[in-house]
Design a protein around this nucleic acid. Structure first.
Lengths: 146, 146
DNA sequence: GCTGAAAGCATCTCGAC
DNA sequence: GTCGAGATGCTTTCAGC
């Protein structure tokens, strides 16, 4: 049962639009049993949703970078995520252990756009930035081991 | 037309299982026109696929870290991605500019598992590692600006 | 590139076990 | 938790513009 749920999640991670009919064939369950399991996994939040995977290079965002930030004033309250949320070029924001406080993953169209974005980040959150430019991505978003 | 494609991609990024019927209603096109556009976006590789978004905490992988790696022998050929690909805990592998050669994003179940993974990474690719543990993730995988 | 219609399938809800 | 069946609704193709 737990095993079948993992199988279903794997199949849906590989093809988020797979039909319940196909899921049923692959798992050996009936269509309605699979249907019920998927709905349950969604309700429990194990499956958070479904999304289209877009090619960043083909939608005008060929450049990726990691931006580590550190507050200028360490005594100030740390509300960087709220202050940065409006910058849609920031795909991810992780609070981290270590010398710096957050690691941001950003996508931009050009070095110029990256420069502008860094200025906006520094101004919005009152932080210093350290940027690591991605040269290529052998893989990304691989499905987790289930 | 370009504009409508972006709208479609946005809708499918937000809900990867949205029906063509709903896409047609949202965009004001006919069902078959939307259908044709989605197929074209997939064929052109702009939409690379569809996937279920899973909650890592609820599938036994509550711990995330970034692992930067650097070759022990800088003269050796750089085939780290091939050597690391079998480690399924590595969700992403980015080649980067800077002092280190790759940044890996990893997901594990516990500090113990992280320690074991780091040993495997060092042994498999003959690299030194520098690990930054993620404490929390305000957001991640946000849809790109279209 | 768009539309509308038609055939074939898939989804989703039942009642029953 | 599972099944099968049925009504509803979706997908996919095609002819026509």
């Amino acid at each position: 049962m737990e095993e079948i749920d993992r199988q279903i999640m794997g199949l849906l991670a590989d093809d988020g639009r797979m039909s319940f009919t196909d899921l049923a064939k692959q798992t050996g369950l009936s269509v309605s049993a699979v249907h019920q399991r998927v709905r349950r996994l969604q309700k429990r939040g194990v499956i958070k949703g479904f999304t289209a995977v877009l090619d960043h290079e083909r939608i005008g965002l060929p450049m990726t970078a990691f931006v580590s930030i550190k507050p200028i004033d360490p005594a100030a309250p740390d509300d960087a995520p709220e202050r940065l949320a409006h910058l849609s070029a920031i795909e991810a924001c992780h609070s981290v252990a270590g010398d710096e406080s957050y690691i941001l993953k950003v996508r931009v169209g050009s070095p110029n756009e990256l420069e502008e974005l860094l200025q906006k980040i520094r101004a919005a959150a009152n932080v210093s930035t350290r940027t690591t430019v991605v040269l290529s991505t052998p893989w990304e978003g691989r499905r987790p081991p289930l």
